[in-house]
Design a protein around this nucleic acid. Sequence first.
DNA 1: TAATATAGGGAGGGGGCCTCCGTTTGGCTA
DNA 2: TAGCCAAACGGAGGCCCCCTCCCTATATTA
Lengths: 187, 187
Amino acid sequence: MDTAKPMRADARRNYERLVEEAKLAFGRHGVDASLEDIARSSGVGIGTLYRHFPTREALLETLLRDRFDSQAAAARELLDHPSPIDALRAWLLDLGRTSARYRGLSDSMMTALTDETSQLYASCHAMQGAVSHLVDRARRAGELREDVTSQEVLLLAHAVAWASEHVGTANGVDRLFELVFGGLRAS
Amino acid sequence: MDTAKPMRADARRNYERLVEEAKLAFGRHGVDASLEDIARSSGVGIGTLYRHFPTREALLETLLRDRFDSQAAAARELLDHPSPIDALRAWLLDLGRTSARYRGLSDSMMTALTDETSQLYASCHAMQGAVSHLVDRARRAGELREDVTSQEVLLLAHAVAWASEHVGTANGVDRLFELVFGGLRAS
DNA sequence: TAATATAGGGAGGGGGCCTCCGTTTGGCTA
DNA sequence: TAGCCAAACGGAGGCCCCCTCCCTATATTA
């Protein structure tokens, strides 16, 4: 189905350079990094950036596409995992790590979920679908609260990613995730 | 100790008008609302806004000061509450509600905590101090995990507030707070 | 090599942040 | 009541960013 005509050589060169520089810029400054800076450091005019990526979300989506795909695949595989709750936990932790990849990304992803015109919408919606199967299975197994929805679970994974932006230590996501997933109360 | 000279009449008028309009604007557009818009709708030049509130954080702090004060007082009183865990829960829920007051506020508050020059720093630091006493008491009573720090608890309260910005229902904070505080696992 | 679809580039309009400094005015004093 | 001046006002201007539009350049194909 990838019937797209091959790109012209100069176009492909610029496209790839933009992706590389965008990774750096988003990594350094979060998802609000200046697009003009990215164009500049790619040695390209701002118009060229917009030709390839009509919105900031489109650029983000390109940077994350591989990751999204592998997450979707992981969700399918984890449906066969012997422990439903561990499967859910593992998948969510991974989602949290993705969402913590760039500062502000958790926010963008949650916002995209309520905006069908966002270029991130499809990916985020897919995540929602993936998690809902894992949640259902864990709930049926009696390992998850009866009343918790998959939206809530997804949201909390993103909330953990958001929170980890504000914590000094490296493994912030993992630790906070454990607290939320394992509970705060003494056992 | 309020030895501040009384404001000139025009200054006081403008100050109060700015506070009112800022409440509206932050309520409508979140903490990133345009300061020039706030000045305009207050019938005042942008320079006048900056004279009264040198930074966005200073303006925010003014809008929230009363709330911060009453929260500090509540923390002191709750130290006498018969149930340490309920005291902590109640106080945190209230903090979550404050932090959910304006879109983006959770982010500002957490960021302020690591920036001593922020005009929100003092208030946020006070919150941190308040919660640490409540956390210590709950932990000593064996009602909270041994290993959880008060920073983590505070952070999770803000994370819940952040998450509630992305949920349609009205009582989002309360519901998510219950999930985090009560745990996701089946009981 | 010439034609042309494709791609590049950047000026320009819109908006926001914040500072600086010339202008205005409230309130006090004589 | 008039005059003074510290206090307050206000907005132009410099800087940055977003995004569009349209003229220019060029890779590819015939």
